[in-house]
Nucleic acid binder design. Structure first.
Lengths: 168, 168
DNA sequence: CTGAATTTTCAATAATTATTGAAAATTCAG
DNA sequence: CTGAATTTTCAATAATTATTGAAAATTCAG
């Protein structure tokens, strides 16, 4: 298998993995393409290499910029925008974790808190059981959310090493 | 808001959260329903309470049984099958993590390993860069996968506490 | 300014995924 | 065994989500 085929395989694999975790396939593929690209790419090059439409390429790029895992790169004398991927896996992986946590988990934690409050006074056995179930899920999620914040906001590599040493 | 409305809100929230993480909405809702249900439920009761079809209820239940996060419960003198949820959040959350890791992450790690092997010999600058990118992602994923195994296969609560103490 | 180059938007459509519900298969009380 | 109760399957359909591509908006060299 030649280098281009290997790159293509990586892009496809990455796209499939993204899909399974609720990340749009094109978005994942654009990130993958930029990760393995030798040089900054323009929207037109991305469209061509992934055979996707201009609209799709543009939306995917905007989302990745929004996540903070790709950057714009100005090329002198060219009016087009070029893009490069953040290559440090720690940086971008943690950004994705933090972003998804904030947008998807934290709102759920808030709903759980509301439900806790709503049922705190319910003295029926059923009410108490519901309260207990909700509370446990809420606290667990809370702990995880806090953990994610700490991990994402402190310094990288050594951290996981520390963790691994404690556990193993 | 009364208890039934609170339960419904939990079920809906849980279903929406699942969808965002690539878990079928009905599957997530069935788990949520069983989590907050006072007693074991039959397929018919689940169908009625979530207003979903028999086929959907059956498939969702099978998947949850497969994940190992709900159980069958025999009720004496009744031919129907009844179901209860695993209520220990540590148990079921870790099972989901482990299952998704095995089914979705580990195959990707294997592809990355293949790609590493395929490009190890490539001496062009572009080939070397690709190898480096792939290797970093592979090693990172590898470490996470190992971490997940260790966490999921050791004993619960104290573990996260240990982690939290190291980090905070 | 002007207008060509470029980016962005968004309604229409395609592709994918979820759901239904009836038919087939299975189970089990009598 | 028998047949009613129950579960499972799966083709058809519905619902959702992704993608297209042309039109509108924006940018910027000259």
């Amino acid at each position: 298998m030649d280098l281009q085929a290997s790159k293509q395989k990586f892009i496809d694999t990455w796209g499939a993995l993204g899909s399974e975790w609720g990340i749009n396939k094109s978005v994942a593929q654009v990130q993958a393409l930029l990760l393995v690209s030798d040089n900054p790419l323009s929207t037109d090059e991305i469209m061509e290499m992934l055979t996707i439409s201009r609209g799709n390429a543009n939306m995917s790029l905007r989302q990745l910029l929004d996540y903070g895992i790709i950057y714009k790169k100005v090329i002198a004398g060219d009016r087009k925008e070029y893009f490069v991927a953040e290559k440090d896996i720690w940086k971008w992986a943690l950004k994705i974790v933090l972003m998804r946590k904030q947008k998807e988990i934290d709102p759920v934690i808030n709903v759980l808190r509301e439900l806790e409050a709503d049922t705190k006074k319910d003295k029926s056995r059923e009410g108490k059981e519901f309260y207990k179930t909700i509370s446990e899920i809420q606290q667990f999620s809370q702990q995880l959310s806090l953990l994610a914040d700490k991990v994402c906001n402190s310094n990288r590599g050594e951290l996981l090493l520390k963790l691994l040493k404690v556990i193993m």
